[in-house]
């Protein structure tokens, strides 16, 4: 059926490449766009083109940005002595939403995974060390994910950073806020018990 309307089929095929989107959803989205005024479709197309044209990675912290260095890196209100290292830009957004951190960031763009051929050279580790050697930073908070690969990356970074005389910390493990203990998985409870602290 779709073969007879090639422009429609093409859009469905492109949309179906999105994560979490299958042919069914892609077809629904395409029909939605079909019913929109021309201007709405053009606005979406421009937004996509602008995203690719205007954004790049910040040359300092490698977060996504439109200006280089990014606003987070140049904001004078931020504490330049505190640096948070994350795997992906999404993690920066998550931590920023929490408004709990006022230092600066460094995005690695991945985690060590020998099976996937990802070693230190594939990550933004060398520029991280350059930043640390510049001398302003006194603490690095390693906020890589709590997976086997994220933990190994954290350990690897700690070994590199500690000889520089810089304090290295890891995000705490714990029970999600507002959750009841009985519904939390065992591994999390186990780590939370190990990481218990004085009241």
């Amino acid at each position: 059926m779709l073969d007879s309307i090639p422009s429609f089929a093409r859009l469905v095929a492109e949309l179906a490449k999105f994560p979490g989107v299958g042919t069914k959803t892609a077809t629904r989205l395409a029909f939605y766009l079909l019913r929109q005024p021309d201007a709405a479709a053009a606005a979406l197309a421009t937004a996509i083109v602008d995203l690719k044209r205007n954004t790049r990675f910040c040359s300092v912290c490698f977060h996504i940005t439109e200006q280089d260095p990014c606003p987070l890196c140049v904001d004078p209100a931020r504490d330049g002595s505190l640096l948070c290292v994350v795997e992906e830009p999404q993690a920066v957004l998550a931590i920023e939403r929490s408004r709990s951190f006022r230092g600066r960031y460094h995005v690695l763009h991945g985690a060590l995974s020998p099976l996937d051929g990802i070693g230190p050279e594939e990550l933004r580790i060398a520029p991280l060390l350059d930043r640390l050697k510049a001398g302003e930073i006194s603490e690095v908070l390693v906020a890589t994910n709590f997976t086997v690969e994220g933990d190994a990356t954290a350990l690897y970074l700690a070994r590199l950073i500690q000889p520089l005389g810089i304090r290295t910390t890891r995000l705490a493990y714990g029970i999600p806020m507002g959750s009841e203990l009985e519904y939390v998985d065992e591994a999390t409870v186990q780590r939370a018990v190990q990481g218990r602290r004085e009241l």
Partner: peptide, 10 residues
């Protein structure tokens, strides 16, 4: 060895 280290620990 430096690359192997974190996996030794893990």
């Amino acid at each position: 060895p430096a690359l192997l280290e974190p996996w030794n620990e893990a």
